[in-house]
């Protein structure tokens, strides 16, 4: 063994040397490095998850916005439709009312005219009767008894009515 170099003190030194190296490397090399790598892995995983979450949220938000926009559009369309219908109804109502009013006015005018005409005819007839009586008195130059008087007047009135009607 001596020829190969086996040497207890050297062996002990190598042992101690190696153990020191092991401990120091563990404490100041592997441990901080592994911790750092773990931290980084955690951080990256968290970042990826965060990014995924944000993406999903923004997608949801966009969908929500799209939905609201669609809703608003439909609502506007509905309002427009309602307004159009209302305008149409109003227009119809108004025209109907105007038509009725005009008709009423025409009706009133017509009845007024009728009334005036009847009144005129009545006045004319009375005037004409008086005129006829006077004329007849003058023509006959005599006084008639009451019965005759009345007969003649009736005759004249009848005639005059016929005249008035024709």
């Amino acid at each position: 063994m001596g020829a190969l170099g086996f040497h207890i003190p050297s062996l002990i030194i190598y042992l101690v040397n190696f153990l020191i190296l092991l401990v120091v490397l563990y404490l100041f090399g592997y441990k901080p490095l592994l911790r750092m790598m773990d931290q980084r892995a955690t951080r990256i995983r968290e970042s990826l998850e965060e990014a995924e979450r944000v993406r999903r949220e923004s997608e949801e938000r966009q969908a929500e916005m799209q939905r609201r926009l669609e809703e608003a559009r439909q609502e506007g369309q509905q309002f427009l439709q309602q307004a159009r219908e209302m305008a149409e109804r109003y227009r119809q109502e108004e025209s109907e009312r105007a038509r009725k009013e005009a008709q009423a006015m025409v009706e009133r005018a017509r009845s007024e005219i009728q009334r005036e005409r009847e009144q005129a005819v009545e006045e004319l007839r009375q005037e004409f009767a008086a005129l006829a009586v006077a004329a007849a008195e003058r023509v006959i130059q005599r006084s008639l008894n009451a019965q005759d008087h009345r007969d003649i007047i009736e005759d004249v009135l009848k005639e005059s009515e016929e005249i008035g009607r024709s």
């Binding site: 100041f28 592997y30 901080p32 490095l33 750092m36 790598m37």
Partner: peptide, 26 residues
Amino acid sequence: LLFFFFATRRMSLVPGGLQNFAEWVV
């Protein structure tokens, strides 16, 4: 020891240079 000392002296989450190499080894 020197290698690991310098590799871990100013460690950052974004590795560079010696730290990168040491991390690769580890």
